[in-house]
Design a binder for these strands. Structure first.
Lengths: 329, 329
DNA sequence: TTGTAGGCGTTATCAT
DNA sequence: ATGATAACGCCTACAA
């Protein structure tokens, strides 16, 4: 594989000139630039990014560590990050932590070892592993979930959960349950808190029996829904914290023969592509996922540029989209 | 940030010894190993992967370039690749080409510049840009779509499309249409070919008016479905080449008030998570996406190990899962 | 404007 | 078994 000195030899100049010519640096004789370019082309020369990064002590690669590639919410975030990064001249490396602290740590280490320019992270927990990056001075931006000491781009998910719950109250549902994600995952905690806010505000008595917490997966939500539907006083509405969970909930509802909307109201987080396909269509809390990613990337690029200044927290609003699944009539 | 010589100084040994100790090479005095380890720990030393790769002329990073992160099929492929890669000691870098030749080329170049150990690619077209890797000796494995001259892991998608179409014929549908992806994308071409195979085999006259080709997106499929439903002789069944397109098709069917199954049969490729949620549940051609990725990664690791030997083509079978959307009764 | 040379942090060769 | 040292390919003072 051709190196810079091969190009220099072929063009009959020094390696320094090749470097300058190819990087458009300072003033280089246009004729030489031409010679260098064609020599490079003839040799099929591709600069070695490793050597360049080693020398410059920085890479043009951004890491994006998300908790679940299979979740449409996060793939939207990813596209937002990618679009901004690419226009900024950076490439994005997507890593899947799978809500798994070990995998997250592993990829954080990769980010350090590969000396990535910065990292956008949706922290699985109050991850301390991120100190590894901070110690090294690598900028980090947290997205979707908070992380102390770094820039954060969040959604006002507690308020959104409260709004969604209030919507169910106004629609006339009486026994509103909540299925949220695992304890410790901030979005899950917040959505539950928002639900409780709205319950209190409506003057309804809190009932622990109406709340379930499960993994952000369909299976857990299916079981939780079955439980909440059983017994003498079943729920007549559900706030579900995640679109993957919503799949499980809707399956359980179908299996139990309960008509969604008319008998059991449902509102779920995230406007999944299939939300309008089920019948009745699913009322959702649409999060600005793409914008979340785009903003996070922008903050990260700013940090890479200049890492001074205190961490910033930006909070975006979610939007309730009312459809048939929360209508009784 | 601590370097290997900092560790050496602190442990009172040479850099060579540190390197050997940390990499478990040859025979190093166990006592020194201990000293080195603790020195490294105290300093928070993380080896510089850039320098290591530069020196060793190889990286422990695999590139995975897929055409659409938002497509559940490809995220399953990604998980398959990742699982195998991780157990083999490699990290996976996921890049989203978006069915866009320019982006694909860009990421291919990144793969070369970062000297990635190998690349798994779902080629957008008969991409010639991949020569850039071959010239450099970087192993490539094509997944989902063929690519001349490299290992390939494919699905027998033509046969699967034929089976699905035959299934519709047997279910009693008469005017079976087909919505496939863009010309030039091999999976799209193959699925259409399989459809035609089955049409011929059933002794039905081919009608170009029953076929539409659109992007692998919901919007195009929605319009195509509207067209196929209009006119004096509308379709009474549809083979849809992709789960994203299926969303558009089902939306159009709903908007037109046609009952799926009873009036218009539908079979779609890819067993999306929501396929059982719609009513009636969607009959699908389930592709072994995870296995596809896992096998591709395994072949790639083999190639990295030893790149001699002629390219291999492995073809996996897809499975028809019959549900209500293809039942007339 | 162009060239020379040092160093980024490792690993591997060659002595010792 | 351990240490000194030469690459790996590039960028960038510094010199000319």
């Amino acid at each position: 594989m051709a190196t810079i000195s091969d190009v220099a030899a072929r063009a009959g100049v020094s390696v320094a000139t090749v470097s300058r010519a190819l990087n458009g640096k300072s003033t280089v004789n246009p004729e030489l630039v031409g010679r260098v370019r064609s020599a490079a082309a003839e040799l099929g020369y591709h600069p070695n990014g490793l050597a360049r990064s080693l020398r410059k002590q920085q890479t043009a690669v951004l890491g994006l560590i998300i908790s679940d590639v299979a979740n449409p919410f996060f793939t939207s975030v990813a596209r937002g990050v990618e679009d901004v990064a690419l226009t900024g001249g950076y490439s994005v490396v997507l890593c899947n932590s799978d809500e798994n602290l070990d995998k997250e740590r592993r990829y954080l280490n990769v980010a350090v070892q590969e000396r990535m320019a910065g990292v956008v992270l949706s922290p699985t927990a109050a991850a301390t592993s991120v100190d590894v990056l901070r110690g090294r001075g690598t900028p980090v931006v947290a997205v979707d979930r908070p992380l102390a000491g770094v820039d954060q781009v969040l959604v006002d998910t507690r308020r959104a959960a409260a709004e969604a719950t209030t919507h169910l109250v106004r629609a006339g549902y009486r026994r509103i349950g909540c299925i949220s994600g695992p304890e410790g995952i901030r979005t899950a905690d917040d959505r539950l808190a928002g639900y409780l806010d709205a319950v209190d505000a409506a003057g309804i008595r809190r009932e622990a029996a109406l709340v379930r917490r499960t993994e952000y997966r369909a299976e857990g939500a299916r079981r939780a829904t079955e439980e909440l539907l059983a017994g003498p006083k079943p729920v007549d509405a559900l706030l579900v914290a995640n679109s993957t969970q919503a799949i499980g909930t809707l399956e359980a509802l179908g299996a139990a023969g309960r008509r969604v909307g008319a008998e059991v109201g449902v509102v779920a987080f995230d406007d999944a592509p299939w939300a309008t396909l089920v019948s009745p269509p699913l009322t959702v809390v649409a999060q600005p996922a793409y914008e979340l990613g785009a903003l996070a990337a922008r903050l990260l690029l700013d940090r890479i540029d200049d890492n001074r200044g205190v961490p910033v927290v930006r909070t975006l609003a979610a939007k309730l989209i009312e459809r048939g699944s929360s209508r009784r009539a």
